[in-house]
Simulated assay, not measured.
Amino acid sequence: MNRLSLANQVCFPLYALSRQVTAHYRPLLEQLDLTYPQYLVMLLLWETDNQFVSAIGDRLLLDSGTLTPLLKRLEQKGLVSRTRNTADERQVSIKLTDAGKALNEQAATVPEQLQQHLQLSDQQAINLRDQLVTLLDQLTNK
């Protein structure tokens, strides 16, 4: 086996798949006026509102240099508010606005639509997600 052959790499199909999946998300998220990274932040906040920037970054594996401008754009869109912690001004809390909460309803069909685009059964989607989570956990030492 030629270890340097593109066909034998694990990284390339993961990279290409990530790009393809993100491309399939794009038209769905354009209807919500969200980018894919903004959508990920909104998913977290719809699960648990009022989180510190550091917790969001930890969960999404994003550094503050990437996350801060993204959160500022969500604030400009009126979807979140950012509040400095009075006890520790280095900590910034992110909370959904009423508009951000309302967007949850509009976004409810996005996962199902993506699954249809990918032509995956429920079980295939679950199996794929579980394999990817296992690999990600191994790489991030969780």
Rank of each mutant, 00 (worst) to 15 (best):
R26D: 08
E47V: 01
L128H: 05
V110I: 01
L136E: 12
L6E: 15
T35E: 09
L67P: 05
G100D: 04
L139K: 09
Q106A: 15
I126N: 02
L118H: 07
T35W: 00
F12P: 00
P27C: 03
N104T: 04
E47M: 09
A99Y: 06
R84D: 14
R73D: 13
Q51T: 05
L128C: 08
R82H: 00
D130Y: 00
Q119H: 07
M1F: 05
S93C: 10
K77E: 12
V10D: 14
Q131A: 05
Q20E: 14
K77N: 10
Q9H: 15
Y25M: 11
Q113P: 01
P111L: 03
L62C: 13
M42I: 02
S54H: 08
T134C: 09
P27R: 00
D98Y: 02
V110T: 02
S121C: 01
L118A: 11
T97C: 07
V10M: 00
P69L: 07
L28M: 07
L103N: 05
S93R: 13
L28P: 01
E30Q: 15
D88V: 06
Q113V: 01
N141W: 10
V21H: 05
Y36H: 12
I56K: 03
V41I: 11
Y39K: 09
D33A: 14
A99P: 04
Y36M: 08
R3S: 11
A55N: 12
I126P: 02
W46D: 03
D58V: 04
S18V: 01
L132N: 07
H24N: 11
A16V: 15
E105I: 10
Q124T: 12
L70P: 13
V53L: 14
D33M: 08
L61I: 08
E105R: 08
V53W: 07
V92K: 11
Q124L: 08
L103D: 08
T83E: 12
R90F: 07
I126M: 04
E89I: 08
A125M: 08
Q51A: 05
